[in-house]
């Protein structure tokens, strides 16, 4: 994305963000709550339309896509929502099958793909459960299975570990790495959990006051002397406030 701006009323969220993900990498986007991380992610698949700037996916300007081209592009991008966003009227199997039914996959192949996707996230055996019968971590895993069922080229993760206990967080992080390794997807992971970011990311970008404050490898960010970055990753609010002032 290049020079992306987005405001809600008078509140500026993104103020000229330029950021790109390399093929096959996992890019973590960190930042304070309300910094615009989810807005950035939603702009990639045009769930939100930037006020200014361009977003390219596979060289296509997302804002210029016609309706059919847009849905075609979205099928190449899996999206894992913060609270999973499972369809609560459907069981786990049908949730995971939704994207596959859209591309008219034959039923036998579809069933096989759903089972395989659920196996990848270690949720096989839960096909008949409703989302209400799952724990938070299980829902996130089903959300991930749904996102990868169509074997997308890219996967976007919106706060995949928020609200989970440390063990489940580590499990989800492991799954993100597994998706990257086994399916070769390019991932963008929005998080404010530094442990997760270090575990899964090839590069980490920090979003701060509408722009990218820092981008580099996990090792580089840990060596950063920028007080805003340092204050955030070490959880030192006084340092960050001092730098902001």
């Amino acid at each position: 994305m290049q020079d992306v701006h987005k405001a809600f009323g008078s509140r500026v969220i993104l103020d000229g963000v330029t950021l790109s993900a390399r093929d096959g990498e996992t890019l973590a986007v960190i930042g304070y709550s309300g910094a615009g991380k989810s807005v950035l992610l939603k702009s990639i698949v045009r769930l939100l339309v930037p006020d200014r700037g361009v977003v390219h996916v596979d060289g296509q300007d997302v804002s210029q896509l016609e309706r059919d081209e847009l849905y075609d592009m979205r099928r190449r991008v899996g999206y894992v929502f913060q609270f999973a966003a499972l369809f609560d009227s459907m069981n786990v199997f049908d949730n995971v099958a939704m994207g596959l039914r859209r591309i008219r996959m034959p039923e036998a192949e579809l069933a096989e793909r759903v089972i395989e996707s659920l196996r990848l996230v270690e949720m096989n055996g839960f096909e008949d459960r409703l989302p209400a019968q799952l724990s938070g971590g299980q829902r996130k895993r089903v959300g991930l299975a749904r996102a990868i069922a169509t074997r997308p080229k890219y996967v976007l993760y919106d706060e995949p570990t928020t609200g989970l206990d440390p063990v489940t967080t580590a499990v989800i992080d492991g799954l993100i790495l597994k998706m990257s390794r086994e399916l070769g997807v390019t991932s963008v992971v929005v998080t404010h959990d530094m442990k997760s970011a270090y575990r899964v990311a090839d590069r980490i970008a920090m979003l701060y006051q509408g722009g990218i404050r820092f981008i580099g490898t996990p090792e580089e960010i840990q060596r950063s002397e920028d007080p805003v970055v340092h204050g955030f990753i070490e959880g030192l609010p006084e340092l960050a406030q001092e730098a902001a002032a």
Binding site: R74, F81, A85, L86, M98, R102, A147
Partner: peptide, 18 residues
């Protein structure tokens, strides 16, 4: 409305449904 606030409508969009 519930689907909207729980992002299920966004999820539909990302799965290629209008």
């Amino acid at each position: 409305g519930s689907m909207r606030v729980t992002e299920q409508i966004d999820a539909l969009e990302t799965l290629g449904y209008d």
